[in-house]
Design a protein around this nucleic acid. Structure first.
Lengths: 200, 200
DNA sequence: CCTACCGATCGGTAGG
DNA sequence: CCTACCGATCGGTAGG
């Protein structure tokens, strides 16, 4: 009966994952502050007090959502390329994945905007997120600059900040006016305008 | 006693302006949904019920904030240039003004992110805002394309969407990690990379 | 404009 | 995991 006896722990882990997924959905719709534990709990079929059995506070649940996002990022990082063109293509692929999963875009956009407030519980998370994103992209643009694949006169550091800003800004504009924005095409257009070689 | 008798109306108008300013500040800090009428009222020195004497609902106050923003935009539009380089320089000047007034950036960033939700009371406002911004910038890029001031191969429509997205994304990134982002320099860098002539 | 109040909702706790 | 409850806060109304 071993297989059955471990069921308690397994069920708990599954339950936690369900709660995290539901929370991510609600955060995307109404932000973190706008999300109530009662709404999240309802979506997973329990009372809000039951949810607090798994996550002791509202902030602990947010931390779990962000941790899972990091874990998923790290998983993708496993198959990450060395700095260069491939990294930029990887961002294009990510954007194209996101367009098919608007919930992810909603979650990220809503939380990033809320978290500009220094006392927001996700503020440090997004600071770190931006630092890491910049350093990864910067390495790639520098490699491209040295190999002559970056257009002459283009500063790799400026290319980095603007590229990341472009992704963020396109997401807001796309969510607001989806018919007027082709997220992937715009990103491709920008990258191509910086390069001397074809992206694909 | 005529001059004194009109005082009642004048004081009311000033009071309304004070409330709108306080509301804009709170929206920038905690968003529209996170803002309470009591906090806004406290900043202008009255009770929240008193505030509701001037603005009958929470949404009416938001509408007034957005209306004043439009009025300020229209005022600036008065001295607007015909489509072309001057319009882009005008956006640079606006960005440089915003950097010295972070509250404006906060307000815009917070509301824009909240308003991606179709049922947000500012959703239609931001849809219109994006439509108008795109059509103004697009005209300028098209003029520049015809005069050869836009780099060959650059699609004016793509330049438009990405330019506006860049402004939005830079604002979020700048608010989160101010030391790592030079908002005006990044904007200038991008515009210059699209042009065949020096911006300044 | 204020005080006083309403019903609704919030995160969290007690006690099983 | 639940029911039942707590104190706090919300937008809005009544009645001056």
């Amino acid at each position: 009966m071993r297989a059955v006896d471990t069921g308690g722990y397994l069920k708990g882990r599954i339950r936690r994952e369900d709660i995290i997924s539901a929370a991510a959905g609600v955060y995307g719709e109404v932000g973190y502050h706008g999300a109530s534990l009662r709404e999240i709990a309802k979506r997973v079929g329990m009372s809000h007090a039951g949810l607090l059995y798994y996550f002791p506070t509202k902030e602990a649940l947010l931390a779990a959502v962000l941790e899972r996002r990091d874990a998923e990022d790290a998983e993708r990082e496993q198959l990450a390329s060395p700095p260069g063109l491939e990294v930029l293509r990887h961002y294009l692929a990510l954007a194209s994945h996101n367009v098919r999963h608007p919930g992810i875009v909603d979650l990220y956009t809503r939380l990033a905007a809320e978290a500009v407030a220094p006392d927001h519980p996700a503020h440090e998370y997004f600071k770190r997120h931006y630092d890491e994103a910049r350093s990864g992209v910067r390495d790639s643009f520098r490699v491209l600059a040295e190999s002559g694949e970056l257009r002459p006169g283009i500063d790799p550091d400026q290319a980095t900040v603007t590229f990341i800003a472009l992704m963020d800004g396109l997401q807001v504009q796309w969510l607001t006016t989806p018919d007027a924005v082709d997220l992937v095409a715009s990103l491709r257009f920008y990258l191509q305008s910086l390069l001397t070689v074809p992206l694909d």
